[in-house]
């Protein structure tokens, strides 16, 4: 095991580094190793990817430790192949640069890769934490300024918590219909 890191810490920062590839964000502090810091604003980590992955409803939680071990194994192999010297203070995947981390994920999610299913699931839930905050109530997420919903510009609900858009249409004909349209509005 890596010096000065508990198993739990290894698990956390490895998964954070993975999530940061799916939707990158800015570093939480100057010494943040998990987040590569290639983007401004919050990414999947700030959006709650770790909370999401630990949500029992996902069905992935029990497999996280195994995935972390495999990911760091792949990172070690990748580094050896590329002649990259890994910093032993952090897990191998975290020691890699952002582009190298992404390259590994692309390989692992390529059709035909024997471990593909697990990596796709991990990617899916990291992305869900960002684009839909599915680990928390959408209304709480909005109230708390969830970085994913803010980033995508998700509109606010009305006072009763429901979405309604009174203005929704340009209100004019914008194209000619197909000449063979039937009276019922279907293709002929």
């Amino acid at each position: 095991m890596h010096s000065g890191t508990s198993d739990e810490h290894v698990k956390t920062i490895t998964l954070e580094a993975f999530a940061d590839c799916i939707v990158p964000g800015e570093k939480r502090s100057p010494d943040d190793r998990a987040i590569a810091g290639v983007s401004t604003g919050g990414g999947a980590v700030q959006a709650g990817a770790l909370e999401m992955l630990h949500h029992d409803a996902t069905g992935i939680t029990a497999g996280l430790e195994a995935l972390v071990g495999m990911l760091n194994g792949h990172a070690t192999t990748y580094a050896a192949d590329k002649g990259i010297t890994l910093d032993g203070d952090v897990p191998p995947f975290v020691a890699l640069e952002f582009d190298d981390r992404c390259a590994i994920i692309r390989t692992l999610t390529t059709p035909g890769h024997p471990e593909k299913d697990g990596w796709v699931l991990l990617s899916l839930f990291c992305n869900m934490a960002f684009d839909s905050a599915a680990h928390m109530s959408t209304h709480d997420a909005i109230a708390q300024g969830h970085p994913g919903l803010l980033t995508i510009g998700f509109e606010l609900p009305q006072d009763d918590g429901l979405w309604r858009f009174a203005d929704f249409s340009y209100g004019r004909q914008l194209a000619k219909p197909h000449p063979d349209t039937t009276p019922s509005g279907s293709p002929a």
Binding site: Y170, R172, A175, K176, P177
Partner: peptide
């Protein structure tokens, strides 16, 4: 056309601009 959302209207306008037709479904 009053029922058509902005997204549908945009698609219709783009089709029309390209010489295509577009139908409300």
């Amino acid at each position: 056309w009053d029922d058509i959302s902005y997204a549908g209207g945009l698609w219709a306008a783009a089709c029309n601009h390209a010489g295509r037709t577009a139908n409300p479904v």
